[in-house]
Design a protein around this nucleic acid. Structure first.
Lengths: 342, 342
DNA sequence: ATGAAAGCGCTAACAG
DNA sequence: CTGTTAGCGCTTTCAT
């Protein structure tokens, strides 16, 4: 309306000139510090000029002057995995409007690495959120701004983290499975050393052992977190698992469960008739599968909102947040049933 | 190592002092403009000092000085809808490392609105990508930086857009359905006026009419793009559709198809035995459904990479990109079959 | 109640 | 080859 596209953008100086006041006065007004320091009449004229010129503060300049950026960096392995989408959603809804969320992803490959982290450090962020960082990444990482680790698999010395507490859920799952007669259980996991994932497995191991069941050591180990990887590799590991007497499979990531389900169908197995299936995550798709997946809900969204709240407080007060935890919970659906007799 | 966390960050001045040269020289070096202008010996000493101090340029200051931000804003309705995740992924892989991608989402509600757009305009972005903007948003929108519309449903006067060309796919789908004996087809769509979605429907109407089939006017119209919405509403509309003799349903968004599928199961319909089902989108989950969904692949990722390329060129050259199109394609899977005899 | 001025850290002429 | 200088647009003291 007032300006053709891509015109020079109005500055505080333009506003000041139009009003006939100084830039400082404009600054006071737009930062809400005018009360009792700027005449009301002047304030109104400034407001009017701002509207007429379509003025908006230049956040870059503002950040430089105040020495504080308004950008939060979100470092995520894979925007396409709904777990991270949900964390992202939690973050955006939890963050104040004055913060901008910048996402940093691996430029190639399927997880983020040092270069990605370097970019995160190089950008001027007010705060940083690292989602499910591999442990090897943290060795070489020294934060330059308030940083929070998400789902890092237990507290990491010197880092602030929000973790998923799976103890209760793991125990419930163990009881659920054993209650259905399952003893020998197969596990599908990622090859990379992700603390968060190893963590899941360790708790599971303990919880199952306590009730007399076992995860075995013959895990199906995959290099990528994709449906395809699990689908292709499942038939092979099945030979081994069959011998051990496996009647249920737990997948360290939900995408794996989708793959296993497809493989089962191709092999003519019925789920849960022949094999019970459990997934970590509980994405919106878990209940759309056929059968719907029994899963451990990792509260991805909650992780995001908790991170947003903690990080904002951290940035504002400068005090490191206490270590936090969001609870995972077991959601029983039709993909688990009585163990097949053997 | 060299500095305790959250120490004051080294500036170019620190580097210059340590080396004993001027700030300008440091600037030349770090911007790769040193060749033939700075003595090699000096360059090495600068490099050394940079490493020792852990210096990184302050991008905020840099942006202010050059008058160009390095941030691209991505405005998206819902990070949780995999379509947008895939666009996002395309964007991140397509964008140069020197750009940072900032995501802007509706602060609440289920689509972005003027306030979100305001935030996008207020941030200092080098470029902006608006995903599937509602038409009503564009009336009041005048870009202040290179902006590209994605999936805006046909060119919008004065805007640069990349659209999904569904003509071929729509024709193929029409032939596919009619070939299977379908005449009366139900359509599930969003109530909001999204040009991109209306567009889909119009093409479909034409393509179907051409081969003697019909989409009817009794669409199932929903307010949110969620699985639940479709699942709950389907049984009601079915009464109407049954009378019309509907044998196939096309869903304007894949999430709707998931809902319809669930509803069908609950109602005891077999798909495609009693009803064929088609979805727009073709997310990774389409083929995991039972039955796998016949769908129109909207090339979300391709949309993202195309946008990244076009926007970068736009920013660098200042010349508006030509209108572009990525083709959609029909993917036939098991959810469509012969029309039920009636 | 308002303005002048210093400066945030960097870049880009321009002068030597 | 290198340093000086003048900003980028804003915030913030400190006078007035």
């Amino acid at each position: 309306m007032h300006s053709s596209p891509l015109n020079r953008r109005a500055t505080a100086r333009d506003v000041a000139e139009r009003v006939g006041c100084s830039i400082a006065t404009v600054s006071l007004y737009i930062n809400g510090k005018a009360a009792g320091r700027v005449a009301v009449a002047t304030q109104q004229r400034i407001e009017k000029a701002i509207a007429e010129l379509g003025y908006r503060v230049n956040t870059t300049a503002s950040a430089l002057a105040t020495g504080g950026s308004n950008a939060i960096g979100f470092v995520s392995p894979d925007p396409t995995n709904p777990f991270f989408s949900m964390v992202l959603e939690g973050l955006t809804t939890g963050l104040d409007d004055r913060f901008a969320l910048t996402v940093l992803m691996p430029s190639h490959g399927n997880d983020y690495d040092r270069p990605t982290l370097q970019r995160a450090l190089a950008g001027d962020f007010a705060g940083l959120v690292l989602a499910s960082p591999g442990r090897y990444l943290l060795d070489a990482f020294s934060p330059t701004c308030p940083t929070i680790l998400l789902d890092a698999g237990g507290s990491q010395a010197g880092f602030n983290s929000i973790d998923i507490d799976i103890t209760t859920a793991a125990n419930e799952l163990a009881e659920h499975l054993v209650g259905l007669g399952h003893q020998e259980i197969g596990y599908v996991r990622l090859s990379r050393d992700k603390a968060s994932l190893r963590h899941r497995q360790e708790y599971l191991d303990q919880a199952l052992a306590r009730v007399g069941a076992s995860l075995g050591t013959d895990h199906l180990v995959l290099d990528d977190i994709t449906v395809k990887a699990a689908e292709l590799a499942f038939p092979e590991v099945w030979e081994t698992w069959k011998v051990r007497g496996v009647t249920a499979v737990i997948c360290g990531d939900e995408l794996y469960a989708y793959g296993v389900l497809k493989a089962c169908k191709a092999l003519g197995f019925s789920v849960p008739g022949d094999l019970s299936l459990v997934a970590f995550n509980d994405l919106p798709y878990a209940e759309l599968m056929d059968p719907p997946l029994t899963s451990i809900n990792l509260s991805a969204r909650g992780l995001g909102t908790a991170a947003a709240a903690a990080l904002q407080r951290y940035i504002e007060t400068g005090r490191r947040p206490a270590r936090q935890t969001v609870p995972a919970s077991l959601v029983v659906r039709a993909s688990t049933g009585r163990a097949a007799s053997r």
